[in-house]
Write a protein that binds this DNA or RNA. Structure first.
Lengths: 332, 332
DNA sequence: TTGTAAGCGTTATCAT
DNA sequence: ATGATAACGCTTACAA
């Protein structure tokens, strides 16, 4: 097990100097085609692999992006992580992943670790809690960082915030329900004080009041179980509700299951729309109408903005929202 | 935006030499308590952060582990990725993630990229296809690598293979079904030529023949949709089957939904057991009995073995299998 | 077009 | 117990 070959070994094998090899590595146009080929051949011959740690010591970027995710097990965030990683890989960047499990302390620790590893930038879907300080280390290191989905630090210039256009999504969904003939539409799920909940609710409130109806809001956990409970709650306390916009698909699926158990026919007696368009939407009976947040597209957008920031120094403009889409299925 | 402080800056601020600072960094016991404190203080004062790229240039390990996942969107693998990342983080290692989307070519590319980034070792849940060569780059780099869940390279010494003890799991599940009074048990789902399928089937075949029954096997995709089709298939062609072990929970959930639509009562007419114990098991009606592969525990095991290999040079012993458990619920 | 030499921030080997 | 100094593998002026 001998040590890995370096550019010096390659240089020797190719009969050139190590600078030339370095130039070839960087695709410099000023090296002659002949020598370029020679060098490439030598590389293959000695089994050379580029050492980015060493390169990084001299030049700036490591080609590493830190990806901090509040809850990787949630399919919504998994989808994002997977999409972003693949997009960044296309551009030659690798992703160092930190799943922080909704733990602000863990988040702070992982951020420091990622900085030590020399990440060139951050994409953070942060945990709530300790809002003030958890991104501080990034600020001190002067690294570019984008907050996605959740905003825990208000310094927009340091940590620009980007999210899908939830408000439009909830507006579309609510209008869809009324257009289908619903007379009373409720909003179910989502913790009351969270910004995401406010946004996913805002379009609902807007349309509902526009149409002269009373809003009916039942906030709570964003879980399947809460959806089941919500079905009972509606049944007992709001029997006239014939349309529901749910905070997310998990809640919606739970609410559908719960309502069916109570004898209601989904898509007829009760129309249901979810949020996120997860795979489970296709596996329920009837299938669930949902607001798709276009996560792969969103990830691509984030990738693009991050690279622009890194390469051209252009931080993302504020207030950017990316397109969402209502996917209509049997449940409504 | 000035450059980041280095150990030299710290040394100056603390009035010691940079060697001393380095020793403090490495928790060397031979540095006096007083100076240690002084140095630590200086670090805080100047806002020092460790630069691992530089350290790596001299010493061996980068503290980076490459995690290559065939399909991160599959909750089973997500769970593994998240668990492993957190375990390794506890030990001071960071995870560089590559989701290769079941694409062998992508896999080869990402492996090279990870090597360039200087990962100290690999954990690979590989894509099928191009079995011969995709791990070759790792072999050439002489890096430790563990294959998990799937085995695509037979060189056990180079790439030891570890997986949960599927065989025992399927044995437990099958016995459970017969003990519940089933007279004909079928196995549904899983692509026919895959090692995983063979293993998840093996316990079923063993117990079934032990009990003097004919095995009934319907292989196919590991999807919800295939489960639905499987329900139809059983209904039409094997009407006497009263117990089913499915390749995984997705298939099982599809099979349950499909069978219910055909008027069969799950847990009575037809008993169903799945594999993986995903969250969806709790959300079906009735809830799904499943073989839990104990992924967090498995991830911990992998973490432990990887670190042993890295630190003590002890590669994992072969044939290691980790514990599984049958979680009994309403569906059986 | 290619070679020479000076760093980059650490760790490791000696001295002291 | 601490300090000086030479690597580590690469990039980047600058010189040839």
């Amino acid at each position: 097990m001998e040590r890995r070959p370096t550019i010096i070994d390659v240089a020797k094998a190719a009969g050139v100097s190590k600078s030339t090899v370095s130039l070839v590595l960087q695709r410099s146009p000023q090296v002659k085609e002949d020598t370029r080929i020679q060098v490439r051949e030598a590389m293959a011959r000695v089994g050379y692999v580029y050492n980015r740690s060493a390169a990084n010591l001299r030049s700036a970027s490591t080609g590493l992006i830190g990806l901090v995710i509040n809850d990787l097990r949630n399919p919504f965030f998994t989808e994002f992580a997977a999409s972003l990683q693949m997009k960044l890989a296309e551009e030659g960047y690798a992703v160092v992943l930190a799943n922080i499990n909704e733990d602000a302390e863990m988040q702070a620790k992982m951020i420091v670790a990622l900085i030590e590893h020399g990440v060139s930038g951050f994409v953070v879907s942060p945990a709530y809690g300790a809002e003030d300080n958890t991104l501080e280390a990034i600020a001190r290191a002067g690294l570019p960082a984008i907050q996605v989905f959740r905003k825990v630090d208000d310094r927009d210039d340091l940590f620009p915030f980007l999210a899908p256009d939830y408000q439009t999504g909830s507006r579309l969904a609510t209008e869809h329900l009324y257009n289908r003939g619903c007379t009373q539409v409720a909003f179910v799920g989502g913790l009351a004080d969270r910004a995401v909940t406010m946004e996913r609710m805002s379009g609902y409130l807007e349309v509902t009041s526009q149409r002269g109806h009373e809003p009916i809001v039942i906030t709570g956990a964003a879980s399947h179980e809460f959806g089941v409970r919500g079905a009972r709650d509606l049944y007992d306390n709001y029997p006239d509700v014939d349309g529901v916009l749910c905070f997310n698909d998990l809640v919606a699926l739970g609410l559908m299951a719960g309502s069916q158990k109570l004898g209601r026919s989904i898509g007829k007696d009760l129309r249901v729309v979810g949020f996120d368009n997860i795979e489970g939407c296709l596996q329920s009976e009837p299938q669930l109408t949902s607001v798709s947040c276009g996560i792969p597209g969103f990830a691509e957008e984030i990738s693009r903005r991050m690279l622009a920031w890194l390469n051209d120094g252009t931080p993302p403009e504020l207030g950017g929202r990316t397109a969402v889409e209502l996917v209509v299925r049997g449940s409504s």
